[in-house]
Design a protein around this nucleic acid. Structure first.
Lengths: 226, 226
DNA sequence: AGAAATTTGTTCGTATGTATA
DNA sequence: TTATACATACGAACAAATTTC
């Protein structure tokens, strides 16, 4: 027995369809809620429930007094949703590390070919600061920036979005993880060395070196980041 | 100027908090909508908008006449949402391929150590059928199964969830992609060879062989799958 | 088995704040 | 400033499904 479609789903499906077939695009204004209700044969409240779902997905933005608009700005909502779901599923840090490694490994391949001069400069800047600064907070910040630029330089949307979600997850729910990792930079110079290899590899177009840096970086985390 | 919190967000935030602090768990029943409205100081309609959002995320299930329950079954909803968002962001097939490769490469490392006997048997079964069957549909099916088992055998939730989303995306929005790839198995035996290497590698505990299979598999896609 | 109570599904009406011309 | 269109929010009502007694 197929479950009957709820009324609010008519709105969600309708807007989705209009997006898929290209009738609606970013910035477009939707018909008013009353109008949608009439067209879809449901009440205004049901339409509103559907619009709230789409708003929460980052597909629609509601402006009080003005109307509902297609926004398509899921980059933030997506990483928030992903990280929240991952949290509820139960996070295991070794799984986070493995997923990160898979993305950075691939990103290294892509970034070596695609990285821009500006990205190179920023990356080198953060590397030098990472090695110079003394506070743990500052180290965390520059460490994070280096890895983000590596991913960004891959210019692959899947990697970028998922890495953002992972960052969101770590910042929000397992904040200690990053600090625990970076705190080892004092006692072991293995992590510092890995970062330098990683950066010099991608900046200098030396794939082997870059990959080795990534590998060493995560080998360190798995050994000492517990 | 900070935008004021909308009324329905009170419900979403409230339930989220109750999940984070452990007061609510899978299967628990929420207070009735009227009760929630009273507690949160909002109307039943606003509460319902919030519940619809959570339902769409796979966090809550509403049962007519019975109540609202915590479900936490996002595995399906998540891959649907992800694939929809990816679609709206605009899909580039080379990016899909790169993301797949990054996950399968990592999965090979993990699966070689963790794959179960049952997974081994299933994988071998699909490989033999992949090489035996003649119709393109059947080939697509067994090809898909092999890669799914590889990912599942990694026992990494991040890889599993994201791979499901990618599958959803390919099935729904770029159906031709998979067929285009697999259709080359007739003219080139490179793809068939890659599959055999991949499977024999992970089943036989030969990491090098498995990785080489993955590499060749995606090298084929990038060269001929256009 | 059946009636009553509870709960969600859905709709309508109304008041209010906001944006736009 | 005024008028109109619109979203925001609340309350009430009834239908439909479920649970309880």
């Amino acid at each position: 027995m197929e479950r009957a479609e709820k009324s609010y789903e008519k709105t969600v499906d309708h807007i989705k369809k209009e997006l898929l077939n290209g009738h609606l695009r970013t910035g477009d204004r939707l018909p008013s809620e009353r109008e949608l209700a009439e067209v879809l044969g449901s009440s205004r409240n049901s339409v509103r429930e559907g619009l709230r779902v789409l708003e929460n997905l980052g597909v629609v933005t509601s402006c009080h007094g003005s109307g509902n608009f297609i926004s398509l700005n899921f980059d933030e909502t997506m990483s928030e949703l992903l990280s929240f779901m991952y949290f509820l599923k139960g996070i295991r840090e070794d799984q986070v590390t493995a997923f990160r490694r898979s993305m950075e490994w691939e990103a290294m391949y892509l970034a070596v070919e695609r990285i821009t001069d500006q990205e190179k400069a920023e990356m080198m800047g953060h590397l030098e600061k990472l090695e110079a600064v003394q506070t743990e907070d500052a180290r965390v910040q520059h460490d994070k920036a280096i890895h983000e630029i590596l991913i960004a330089a891959s210019h692959n949307d899947f990697l970028i979005t998922n890495y953002k979600a992972l960052n969101n997850l770590m910042d929000r729910y397992i904040r200690s993880m990053r600090a625990r990792i970076i705190s080892g930079m004092n006692s072991h110079n293995m992590l510092a060395k890995a970062h330098r290899e990683l950066v010099e590899g991608v900046v200098g177009g030396d794939l082997e070196k870059g990959l080795h840096g990534v590998l060493e970086h995560f080998r360190y985390i798995e050994e000492y980041g517990k």
